[in-house]
Nucleic acid binder design. Sequence first.
DNA 1: GCCAACGTTGGC
DNA 2: GCCAACGTTGGC
Length: 154
Amino acid sequence: MQYWLMKSEPDVYGIDDLIRDKVNMWEGCRNYTVRNYLRDEMQEGDLAFFYHSNIPPTGVVGIMRVVHAPYPDPTQFDPQSEYHDPKSPKDQPRWFVRDVEFVEKFARVVSLAEMKATPGLEAMPVTQKGQRLSITKVSPSEWDLVCTLGRSNR
DNA sequence: GCCAACGTTGGC
DNA sequence: GCCAACGTTGGC
């Protein structure tokens, strides 16, 4: 099983929205590296950190699970959508989504600053300057460390 | 709001 | 296939 970190801006879609919805389509990826992760590398049952980007406190706020096979992102064919991609061929879609299911909200946010300061997390892409993929891989040891932090009282 | 970093586009 | 211009991300 592979672990992941997936970013979302909480004013667009945050962990409390996922608690309400229980399952949600992770839509709108328009980057080929991330597309390949979604389409080719993620497996049903993989676990992912939910990361709040852009609005402080930025950081990991909980855990979700990948619950469905990949399928074409419907927003790419929707002219009304901000994610509309008129160049994506209908018979060979460019963009894919996964469904994710809520698993856990941490007792506290594991902030980006804290992750940068925690030994053992320095290889996480999210702690590195200029790294802006919206989905990245997480190693088992990184996974355990961040979970421990998020479940602790600090 | 600024801006550094990076991905994508398109002219040649 | 190079690379400059442009758009976007996302921390601060």
